[in-house]
Design a protein around this nucleic acid. Structure first.
Lengths: 355, 355
DNA sequence: TCAAAAGTGTTATCCTTACACCCATGT
DNA sequence: ACATGGGTGTAAGGATAACACTTTTGA
């Protein structure tokens, strides 16, 4: 390759000693938050901690560098110590340093930075011994994001009514206003962001943009968290001004944003890594697998193509058994072929055709 | 959609008050590290801070939550204040809590957690005023990862000689040994990891696995950082035991791991988002665009197909001008069509055919 | 006239999408 | 018999990969 060139040399304070500025810095604490996902039938669920009336929160614990070598080890350790849940797949999502978590500037105590994790597990009934206390429970994640479920109550796919009735009218009004100085410098104008995120005129609804959608709603002051974080100005704009925003259940601190991050990431990852199987029991029918994928992605997929896709992908193999529990013709049972991890470079379920 | 069910209730310490455990926790400091990438001709370069003889490091600065609302704002602020670099694209990579950064357990002072960022910029010559001091400079990133450049010195693609001469023999030896207790519980056996990461027998070389490859080399004790972090045992195994490992230049602390993360992420992102253009000048020829993509991905692509792919993608438009500087027939100049961001859901350059 | 690099056209192949149809069970 | 869900086959369309070939400059 070439010899190291001496060329542009922007001046950057080198900070050879990482502690150089530590005296002047306020204390910081790192919170590890886990979005622990399981799918129960056709319902994706998330483990939350209840606050007796107050909005629920994701389970979390502080990171103690003296006890745990890495962040992920820390997360696994206290989750597996305090619950009997077996965390299969664990993945770091994002680190949020926002003040959102502690709303006010004059807060005392350490500043909280939260590292969000995604964990996948099997439905509670399968994870025996998971029940130990009463503070935490699994709740459907679409309680927090009703606009993300496009499967409809009946069978056929169906646009959530909430979108046209409540969300889009308010967002269109917001898009008509002048952007704040904060927004101006970076990114697209409001109208365009709205089109991209919510699939207005011509743009398709992209299920992977769950995080961007939540953040847009937050900026527009349409979720409860925005008010809590002191964005009252944004909220006043709402029609009438009396009715508080009710777009989905809210959560503690920035937890709903972490959950939105988890949903986006999981929906994306489904397509290029065999992560669904972390949420499936040992053996399952192809329809059960399809229901799980649909639950997560939030819309129906084409049955026949899904089946072929799965069978061609070599990700499953028949167990030999079958079940009658589904009603109708008995369904073959399959299991995950772990060997694909060693055969294919990047196995996954790239589904695009809607059902 | 459905009513919230009361079902499984794993007991998790609720930690309603985020400060509950703060007294017993050691102080933590958050370092923001930036992998700032630019492409100069056919060479990808990374901005490093020189330590006069010692291994270079990524520029970094501490996060001060009182001054900056978010981590990214903090990063942008000090980079743009201390250098005159214009950071176009900035993206959070990963947060490392490892002790790797401070090698020894008995360290005094705050524990350092590093949040790695990827930033893209234009070549130094373009970023006028970027030159302010002499501590920082751009160096070719393949100095740190020579095994990642498959383009060859001549023209045709070519496997780096280093792989067969030094890396693979040592890795095969490592794969033949018994795994440590740490490794055993999670993941694949050594032999399989080696196949996947380095494309042994039948598996293709996946350029996106740059991070996994570096981590494998670290675990096998074949990079200098492994020795520094106290993995001497691993190092003793090396044949002869006298010659220190020389697989690429090493960096400060965990910085090479962050750079590996940046390379992996950038190589992946190239394929589904129009990020190349953040590193291109206002107008460019298609061949220049191709050279940039090749520089990053580390291998050649098929010229004709690349051109068609780009032109069909509607990501560029002709400026009308042309240049003679390329030698041979004059080349048309193109510019990035920013409108694609609003037209296509996820534009990118999915190239797979090798050149 | 030749080398070098830009730029065009064509074809075989695979993958995706969509549609139509058959099979096995319970009521 | 028929409803229900499981399971299979096949044809059209589009994207990709690989190939050969033409054009325009400088030396």
């Amino acid at each position: 390759m070439a010899a190291t060139p001496m060329r542009a040399t922007p001046s950057i304070s080198t900070c050879g000693d990482p502690m150089s500025a530590s005296d002047s810095l306020p204390p910081i604490e790192i919170g590890l938050s886990a979005a622990i996902v399981a799918v129960e039938g056709d319902r994706p669920e998330i483990l939350v901690v209840d606050f007796a009336g107050a909005p629920p929160g994701l389970p979390f614990g502080p990171f103690d560098p003296l006890r745990h070598r890495t962040l992920e080890i820390g997360l696994r350790a206290w989750v597996e110590a305090q619950t009997a849940l077996t965390l299969g797949y664990v993945e770091q999502l994002y680190t949020f340093g926002d003040r959102g978590r502690h709303a006010r500037r004059d807060d005392r105590g350490p500043h909280e930075v939260s590292v969000g994790y995604l964990a996948l597990t099997r439905p509670p009934a399968e994870a025996q011994g998971a029940v130990r206390g009463t503070e935490a429970l699994f709740v459907p994640w679409y309680d927090f994001f009703p606009w993300e479920d496009w499967r409809g109550e009946d069978g056929r796919g169906q646009r959530p009514a909430l979108l046209d009735e409540a969300i889009l009218p308010d967002l269109r009004a917001w898009a008509g206003e002048k952007p704040t100085s904060h927004e101006a410098f970076r990114g697209l104008p409001r109208r365009e962001r709205l089109r991209l995120c919510f699939g207005e005129d011509g743009m398709p609804w992209d299920e992977e943009r769950a995080l961007e959608r939540y953040e847009l709603l937050y900026e527009a002051g349409l979720v409860e968290e925005a008010a809590r974080d002191g964005r009252d100005a944004a909220l006043k704009r709402r029609a009438g001004g009396s009715a508080p925003p009710t777009l989905g259940r809210s959560m503690q601190a920035d937890n709903r944003r972490i959950l939105a991050t988890a949903i986006s990431r999981l929906r994306a990852k489904l397509k290029y890594r065999p992560v669904v199987f972390e949420m499936m029991p040992e053996s399952f029918t192809l329809t059960e697998l399809q229901r799980t994928v649909e639950a997560i992605s939030g819309h129906h997929v084409h049955k026949q193509n899904f089946r072929r896709l799965v069978e061609n992908s070599a990700m499953v193999e028949p167990t030999g058994g079958s079940t009658l529990k589904t009603g109708g013709r008995p369904a073959q049972l399959f299991r995950f072929r772990r060997e694909v991890l060693q055969e294919r470079p990047a196995p996954g379920l790239r589904l695009s055709g809607r059902g």
